[in-house]
């Protein structure tokens, strides 16, 4: 029995090793990470331009200007930078996961691997593990870029750095983990779509379609009356936003900061449980579909 477990574990590690080999040799991995970093930087530049242009004279513009300064300061880097991460990392990680799985079908390499006696679940587990790892790395990389940009402008504008201590580090770590967790359902959804459609393009399109359309759907239903208004509380986006609130807020009134929209207000634990349920459902479907379906037709 132990030898069987050891054999399976070795083979699983082999599949992981192979997957990491593919990802590390793929230019797209670096391109996606660089794109994410660039997008975060661009947003901080936009924020800087907003501050640099002054508060303006329109009604309420002064408070918006102050809010922008608050968002840029290192004091609020955890809620603001991670809120940006949530949006951009979802895009980047969905593209990564959808193409990683879908390309195996496009290139028909999934058949080559399966025909060599690699357990299908080993192959899929390696894909999901790598996607999770990439998501964690992408969120961390974007967060670090956000921190660097925020630190620079905090220095330039002599803003508040806050107190950087063990507690801050813990908050930063928890914020990173929370953001990664919120992004993951869409990443797994992309893998599911790739397994269903057997195509990278369709997988990415479908997963991103769900991401954007769900936001619109949530916005519409939130304003509805009766039972339909409760539907968003069971969707990914609403619960993702709810969980992201636990990262803190930029303004004293609980605002998420400039360019950040969101209306989720469910308790964090409940939101996390809904997301866990979604992820579990998606993973069960992925494994079932991949295990049962013909690799090629």
């Amino acid at each position: 029995m132990s030898s069987l477990v050891r054999t399976q574990a070795t083979r699983l590690l082999n599949a992981l090793d192979a997957e990491l080999f593919k990802v590390s040799h793929r230019r797209m991995t670096a391109i996606l990470l660089i794109s994410l970093a660039a997008l975060v930087l661009v947003f901080y530049v936009l924020l800087w331009l907003r501050i640099d242009s002054g508060p303006g004279t329109r009604r309420g513009s002064y408070f918006a200007w102050l809010e922008a300064k608050a968002a840029m300061s290192f004091l609020h880097v955890i809620p603001y930078s991670l809120a940006l991460e949530r949006f951009f990392a979802t895009l980047v990680c969905v593209i990564f996961a959808g193409s990683m799985m879908g390309n195996e079908y496009d290139w028909r390499t999934v058949g080559v691997v399966a025909a060599r006696g690699v357990h299908r679940w080993h192959f899929l587990f390696a894909k999901l593990f790598t996607s999770t790892l990439f998501t964690a790395v992408a969120v961390a990389a974007g967060f670090l870029i956000g921190m660097a940009a925020s630190a620079w402008w905090t220095h330039v504008y002599v803003l508040d750095y806050g107190t950087i201590d063990a507690r801050w580090l813990q908050d930063a770590f928890e914020g990173w983990a929370r953001t990664t967790f919120v992004v993951l359902p869409y990443v797994y959804l992309a893998v599911l779509c790739a397994t269903v459609f057997r195509s990278a393009g369709q997988a990415v399109g479908a997963a991103l379609g769900v991401y954007f359309i769900e936001s619109i759907f949530t916005g519409i239903l939130t304003g509805a009356e009766g039972w339909p208004r409760h539907i968003p509380a069971f969707l990914l986006n609403f619960n993702g936003e709810s969980l992201m609130r636990a990262n803190g807020s930029v303004t004293a009134t609980g605002g998420a900061g400039p360019f950040i929209f969101g209306s989720g207000d469910a308790p964090a634990l409940r939101a996390a449980l809904v997301l866990v349920a979604w992820m579990a459902g998606i993973l069960v479907l992925v494994f079932w579909r991949f295990q049962r379906r013909d690799i090629q037709e």
Partner: peptide
């Protein structure tokens, strides 16, 4: 089976290395 299927961005040798990782 049918036309050869390999990872296009890897070299021939790396493709075999990849397969060797799956079945060492």
């Amino acid at each position: 089976v049918e036309t050869p299927a390999f990872v296009p961005y890897l070299s021939g040798r790396d493709n075999l290395r990849l397969l060797e990782k799956y079945t060492p």
